[in-house]
């Protein structure tokens, strides 16, 4: 069953267009990572889904309904981001109480245990928490609300690394126990790639890639060896990224070589390795053969 559907969705602001006729669908129960460079429209996309903003053209459907000004969508979805604020005088306890009234699936016990675990004082005011603590509390709310559509936009901003780890672990455990549709964005793909089933790569306003994380990881291979040998073996193939490591070079090409080609490369001292999701993402979003090094040439 489809939970989110975008059909030719464009979102423009006065000065620029962020999303350009983007198309994709998110199926129920899938944990999808939304990745892309800064300012490509990941946040815009998420805000369209929960109805905070309205599409300029095209069709956005969530639970088969238009989300903008839609009570059903609002009641069954939650967007956790750093814009999630609560009134100045409200304490951590107050905020959790309000959540309990608004979200029917709210797990008060889990929320309380998480708040204790992460060391919140129940009477601390939300507005006076540090950035990292605010992110942590918002993330707890996102987990405990158990909304059929749960969205986290850069949820770990300001969290220290041990809290990040704990949060992702908590999210996974709760997802296993209560499967639901989750969208998760992060700058650090390597941090979330293990958690993801699918990846939606937003680039230049469109869905540049949408598929399983393993598909993304197997899309490319890394060849490491001497530059001349690499050039010889990759003749006629598109090189997506090059990186110099001392005397050796690391080139990323599409994983479309025959077994024979691979064996010959190995004979020539070229090491072949799989590509991390992050490198694959960089390869997909870089112009071929263009990197920071080329700026200095």
């Amino acid at each position: 069953m489809t939970v989110v559907e975008f059909i030719n969705v464009t979102k423009s602001y006065r000065t620029h267009t962020v999303l350009k006729e983007i198309n994709f669908t998110i199926k129920q129960g899938v944990l999808t990572g939304i990745i892309g460079r800064n300012g490509v429209g990941k946040t815009t996309l998420m805000k369209l889904i929960v109805g905070f903003i309205e599409e300029t053209s095209g069709k956005v459907e969530v639970f088969s309904e238009k989300p903008f000004n839609n009570l059903k969508v609002s009641a069954n979805s939650i967007l956790v981001d750093d814009g999630m604020n609560f009134p100045y005088p409200m304490t951590v306890t107050d905020v959790l109480k309000e959540c309990n009234r608004f979200y029917v699936n709210w797990d008060a016990k889990l929320a309380e245990r998480l708040v204790n675990y992460f060391g919140f004082h129940p009477d601390a005011r939300h507005s006076q928490l540090s950035k990292g603590k605010k992110s942590t509390l918002n993330a707890i709310i996102g987990i405990a609300a158990r909304c059929p559509l749960t969205i986290f936009d850069e949820p770990t901003t300001g969290m220290d690394s041990s809290v990040r780890k704990d949060f992702y672990r908590a999210l996974l455990k709760d997802y296993l126990a209560h499967p639901r549709t989750i969208l998760l964005s992060s700058h650090h793909i390597e941090e979330i790639e293990d958690l993801l089933e699918d990846v939606l790569l937003v680039h230049e306003g469109i869905a540049h890639f949408h598929g399983s994380i393993t598909e993304l990881q197997e899309m490319f291979i890394t060849l490491t060896g001497k530059k001349e040998k690499l050039a010889l073996h990759t003749n006629g193939k598109t090189v997506f990224s090059t990186n110099n490591l001392g005397p050796y070079s690391e080139w990323i090409i599409q994983n479309k070589c025959t077994q024979k080609e691979l064996e010959q490369m190995k004979l020539d001292g070229i090491a072949i390795a799989s590509v991390s999701a992050n490198d694959a993402y960089i390869a997909l979003t870089d112009r071929p053969k263009g990197g920071i090094d080329d700026v200095f040439e």
Partner: peptide, 22 residues
């Protein structure tokens, strides 16, 4: 997938209480 279908009046009441606290 179970979806909650709240009525407008239900949410307005909850928001009213929230606004009193806030």
């Amino acid at each position: 997938m179970y979806l909650n279908e709240p009525t407008l009046s239900d949410i307005v009441k909850k928001q009213f209480r929230f606004k009193l606290n806030a």
